[in-house]
Amino acid sequence: MIGKTWIVVAGDAAVGNLIATARGFGGTVSAAVVGPRAVADTIAGGGVDDVLWFGEPGKAPVEAYAGAVADAIAASPGIVLGPTGPSARVLLGAVAARMQVPVLTGGTTASADGDTVLVTRSVFGGIADEINIVAGPAVLLLDGGQVSAADGSAPVQQVDCTPLGITVVETRPSHLAHVDLGSAVRVIGVGRGLGAKEDLALITELAGASKAEIACTRPIAEGLDWLARDRYIGCSGWNISPEVYFAIGISGQLQHMVGVRGAETIVAINSDPNAPVFAEADYGLVGDLYKIVPALTKALT
């Protein structure tokens, strides 16, 4: 039986999976919410026992509350769960430092086992799994997931605090669309095999014809900036398990493939017959994506 579990919320209410996990531990579940009141209320209605809210952020980014969150949680320590986003990581880092406790990343499942928690983690870029026994306060990062409203609402207590000296002086909205790949049934992943950003049109057509979401490898989102940063799959991005995943112009490096190992079926299209991706594919097509993708779109319409 676990005494207390904390859930750290960093501006975004997508912590459903964490609440469910914490509930599974038994014991009380408290949330430390940084962000607008609306987020605090969503969490309060999402099945936690109580909510600490750090006030309206105004010009202060989530990260400015790291110290305050650390203080609050260190005051009544427990197992701390949090999502994997950059702002959440800053809050969680401060908590781990303040309590001087271990941090577990790459967590896939966590469940109570007597008065300890068993955590399964994918370690070292996914080459192995490790099962850990957590026997006291520790920080555990898990993938988010939408909050499903529970009946009743937990009390929200406002903590007054002075944020650290960071202020947002400017925001420039991007024009890259976002998705929730977590729930997508079909996903088309595109990699550096694509010659130019314009050629994404080919992929969009295929996506239309197959009713699939478009995702990518890291270099496509970071570096080339052809797609939003929340669209790349792999150990530092999404871990998805769709019905079918199309890996197009993707070499199939470990760090990417770990993110799609849950896929029911994997189709690989690559001009290099020796590309590692074929080793993890159900259907492999060796050839030029510029020839195969249009043909595939045609075959689907």
């Binding site: 309590m99 001087q100 406790v101 271990p102 577990l104 068993l118 994918s122 996914g126 080459i127 192995a128 799994d129 490790e130 099962i131 850990n132 026994i133 957590v134 026997a135 006291g136 306060p137 520790a138 770990v258 190992r261 849950g262 896929a263 994997i266 074929f278 080793a279 993890e280 594919a281 159900d282 259907y283 492999g284 097509l285 060796v286 050839g287 020839k291 195969i292 249009p294 043909a295 045609k298 075959a299």
Partner: peptide, 29 residues
């Protein structure tokens, strides 16, 4: 740092068995 975490065991990631079926692409259609 508090020694609250220990290793119970390690394992190879369980990989789904894949068909590994290659489709001839001489004619894309």
């Amino acid at each position: 740092t508090a020694g609250t975490v220990s290793i119970k065991g390690t394992a190879r990631p369980a990989l789904k068995a894949r068909k590994g079926q290659m489709i001839d692409t001489t004619d894309p259609a």
